[in-house]
Amino acid sequence: MITAVIIDDDSNIISGMRGLLTLFAPQIDIIGEADTVLSGIAAIENLKPQVIFLDIQLTDGTGFDILEKINEKQGKIESHVVFITAHEEFAIKAFRFSALDFLLKPVDPGELKKVIEKIIKTIEKNNEFSNIELLLENVKKEKNNFKRIALSNSDGIHQFEIADIIRCESDDNYTKFFMKNGRVILISKTLKEYEELLKDSGFLRVHQSHLINLKYLKSYIKKEGGNIIMQDNTNIPISQRKKELLQDILFKQISK
């Protein structure tokens, strides 16, 4: 069995989560509950659960406050954290940049099953949960000012400076990340998700299969349908509908 605690200030959410976990994830053993920051910290310290289902907004603070206090006391978080939240755009973006799981209220059974399956697959792996520290770093920042991103694949969770990503390439339902140091990492998420995540960080999707970091754009070649050369010397095609947008961006950069 996988031990877990639920921290939420809504008793209906707690009872609802208990019911959903009983039906759809019987391998999860709820060993504790809490409804405040203080009781949540005590539950985690005393029970040491493998999984924490954590609400963002609590009566005496936030779920982030709990993680910060545990981090300060123990040096690191040693539990899988699954946030339960209303649709809070900034928080959700921070979760995605940090490769952390979240469930939107009301909790969808299908999404819950996906999260539990992911936890079961990774529970035996050696994980330092450093992406929780990245989350705490990100939630303190101004909106859309994230500097690092966590990428999760079968090998574990890897953190990178966003500025070191040259480009991303679609590979069916996977995305390949090409890094400044030559490293390539394959992630089991679509390019569309990363387009949405990185569009405010200087990235542009120039083709259905290519998302580029504009700061690594070396040259733009108009002939033969149009393509661009990146600083790693890769040749990237440009879709017809993105040519004008790219030209506008380049013109603005030259005009500065």
Rank of each mutant, 00 (worst) to 15 (best):
A91Y: 14
A91S: 12
R96I: 02
S98I: 06
A99W: 10
A99M: 08
L104A: 02
L104N: 03
P109H: 02
G110K: 15
G110R: 14
L112T: 00
I116E: 00
K118T: 10
I120Q: 13
T122W: 07
I123E: 03
I123W: 01
K125E: 13
K125G: 05
E128G: 12
F129Y: 14
S130Y: 01
S130M: 10
S130N: 14
N131C: 06
N131D: 06
E133C: 06
E133L: 11
L135Y: 04
L135F: 08
E137W: 04
E137C: 02
N138H: 11
V139W: 05
K141G: 08
K141F: 01
K141H: 07
N144R: 13
N144K: 14
N145H: 14
F146A: 06
A150C: 10
S152R: 15
S152P: 01
S154H: 11
S154Y: 11
D155L: 15
D155Y: 13
D155K: 15
G156F: 06
I157P: 04
Q159D: 01
Q159A: 08
E161F: 14
I166K: 08
R167N: 09
R167Y: 09
C168H: 01
S170N: 10
D172I: 13
N173M: 05
F177E: 08
F178N: 07
F178R: 06
M179D: 03
G182N: 01
V184R: 12
I185M: 11
I185H: 08
I185F: 07
S188Y: 11
K189I: 03
L191D: 03
Y194P: 08
E196N: 12
L198C: 02
D200H: 14
S201V: 01
S201P: 01
G202T: 03
G202R: 05
L204A: 09
Q208E: 13
Q208L: 09
S209T: 09
S209I: 06
S209K: 11
S209E: 08
H210Y: 15
I212G: 07
N213S: 12
L214N: 04
Y220H: 15
I221G: 05
G225V: 07
N227P: 00
I229Q: 10
M230C: 06
M230R: 04
Q231N: 12
Q231H: 05
D232V: 03
